[in-house]
Design a binder for these strands. Structure first.
Length: 532
RNA sequence: ACGCCCAUGGCUCAGCUGGAUAGAGCAACGGACUUCUAAUCCGUAGGUCGCAGGUUCGAAUCCUGCUGGGCGUGCCA
């Protein structure tokens, strides 16, 4: 990638000069310029000013006389910036050699787990945000050469599944049998519970015995939900590589392993009938329950087994994308894994994806799966389709709280910026179709002034991608694509392509840009429609 | 009380391992379709970057304190 070469070589040129002339061993930074006239800059002179006891502008002037790599122009300007403009030749070279390949392999495996919830209800808006973010993040890792497994953890071993099954049975008794039943606070009473009861009513009637019915529902209703979720997510453009079920951990005997290990480390004790782990000894603020007085294991215990399993599966890294309501679990889990199981500190990374606030008539809505008053992913997709909803979630940083209502997303459908970007590709295709051009990309041998902004964005694309990956922030890519689309629409407006004196060149140029935007959109999980 | 996150034009957000005039989109106003799709383009207006200090050549960006909002601190999940 030429951009790295550009930075590295010029960095070396300045460093070498400073070392030879002034015996200074200093880290020279070359950054992307913040003003549009220039591409890169270094503020090294201002840092050297004190050391050399000279005005920064003098030093900059001196440095500007060096011969740099790949620059079209170099400027020394007050108070002491050294500005660079990348040469057209280098930009051209980059365009001609541009490939959007994800063939790069760095021989590292990462497991990215997201959405993961109790299999007791349909996919909702919050899952939609997690799905969008998780997919985009895994694509960034892939682009960087990682082997990525996207994983969905099914919490099917806990008490919620019991409650879920019981709720369905109650719904059955109420709806089908006409009995009067009371739902307790922690039971599920959404409409979909009644639908499931309806769905299984024949089988339930056939079984008759309550215990058998509950056992049946625990299995079948959960499977029903999971299949439904799978289908839903697939329609959303997301296919997980691994669906990992919590119950498999117990089947593998991990519970015994973990307990034995902790016991050997003398990290367990019983109190009031419950089993505690001594997290305080490991630097936590309190100890935590692993097994309740009822004999059931806590989620925390499940998480320990689960992440130990991930580690044993040989990943170099595991990333969890969790909601803010789980932030408390993150700390205690990491402390225990690192100190009691010797799992390296940077193995597990927990990203807290901020919450989605549901609004109705401008008021915040208190939602819960138990009350069944959430907005499902299905509803959203019916209203606005995948691209718009995806874009809505992905265009803001993961730390941002997102307000969501069916009204706002409908408004989004009228003027979502995703269309602005997609329209760029559609326009390019329109030209190619209209002019009957093939897909073959020929070598460009020049670069017009209007094309330069776009060429430069492609030039620094590798920087952007590594930055976005480092920050775990796919939204950065979206913002750049948006800017690129702006450049293009401007260019398109100013240039009549077909029939122009420069037709061959312009066609070639838009082919390259078109391929780029299509690949970028696809990378983040968006469609690139040829017509709109 | 403690911990995590957030605060940037009317609205939604960029910009944050310090840099040169704080950028987009929506909404408002004024223009541009006999043209390769106007889902577009051009122009106007709109900001004491929550407040107060500090660090320095330079702070929206880093540090401290405060204010306001969200979440967390369960033998809930």
């Amino acid at each position: 990638m030429f951009v790295n070469e550009f930075i590295k070589k010029n960095h070396a040129i300045i460093s070498k000069y400073l070392k030879e002339k002034y015996s200074l061993d200093i880290d020279v930074k070359i950054d992307k310029a913040t003003i549009p006239q220039w591409d890169f800059y270094s503020s090294i002179a201002m840092q050297l000013s004190k050391k050399l006891k000279r005005a920064p502008i003098d030093i900059t002037m001196e440095l500007s006389k060096l011969s740099f790599y790949g620059t079209g122009a170099v400027e020394a300007v007050k108070p002491g910036f050294l500005n660079f403009r990348v040469s057209k030749e280098l930009l051209l070279k980059n365009l001609n050699g541009f490939s959007f390949s994800t063939d790069k392999k760095i021989n590292k495996r990462v497991n990215i787990e997201f959405i993961s919830a109790n299999p007791t209800g349909p996919m909702n808006v919050v899952s939609g945000r997690a799905a969008t973010f998780g997919l985009a993040l895994s694509r960034l890792f892939q682009y960087d050469g990682w082997d990525v497994d996207k994983e969905y953890y099914i919490n099917n071993a806990g008490n919620q599944v019991n409650i879920f099954a019981n709720s369905i049975y109650k719904a059955y008794r109420e709806k089908v049998k006409g009995e009067k039943v009371e739902f307790s606070e922690d039971e599920y009473k959404g409409e979909y519970i009644y639908d499931i009861a309806e769905h299984f009513k024949d089988k339930i009637a056939e079984l008759g015995d309550e215990e058998e019915i509950i056992n049946f529902l625990k299995k079948k209703a959960v499977t029903l939900i999971i299949d439904d979720n799978k289908k839903m997510l697939s329609g959303f453009g997301l296919d997980f590589d691994i669906w990992f079920s919590e119950s498999s951990l117990y089947e593998k005997g991990y519970d015994k392993d973990v307990l034995l290990h902790l016991k050997e480390k003398d990290l367990l004790y019983e109190k009031d009938g419950a089993l505690f782990v001594k997290n305080t000894e490991l630097g936590d603020t309190q100890d935590w329950v692993l097994r309740k007085g009822t004999g059931e294991y806590t989620y925390f215990f499940g998480d320990i087994m689960y992440h130990l399993d991930k580690f044993r599966r040989g990943y170099d890294k595991a990333i969890n994308i969790w909601g803010p309501d789980h932030q408390g679990s993150a700390k205690r889990l990491k402390i225990l894994l690192e100190n009691a199981f010797d799992i390296p500190r940077d193995f597990l990374e927990i990203i807290i994806l901020q919450q989605v606030n549901l609004l109705k008539d401008g008021e915040k809505l208190k939602v819960s799966k138990r009350l069944g008053n959430f907005i499902t992913l299905e509803e959203i997709l019916e209203k606005v389709g995948t691209d718009v909803s995806r874009f809505y979630f992905l265009s803001r940083g993961y730390k941002q709280h997102v307000d969501f209502s069916l009204d706002t997303i409908e408004k989004e459908n009228e003027n979502s910026a995703v269309f602005y970007i997609q329209y760029m590709f559609a326009r390019i295709n329109g030209v190619l179709i209209k002019g009957n051009f093939d897909n073959k990309v020929e070598k460009l041998n020049k670069l017009g002034e209007n094309e330069r902004n776009m060429a430069f964005k492609l030039f620094i694309f590798p920087l952007l991608m590594s930055e976005a990956l480092r920050k775990r922030e796919p939204s950065m890519v979206i913002h750049t694509l948006n800017e690129l689309a702006g450049d293009f629409h401007h260019f398109y407006h100013d240039n009549k392509i077909i029939g122009s004196n420069d037709e061959e060149h312009l066609i070639n140029f838009i082919k390259i840009i078109g391929n780029f935007i299509k690949n970028s959109l696809n990378l983040l999980g968006f469609n690139a429609p040829e017509r709109m």
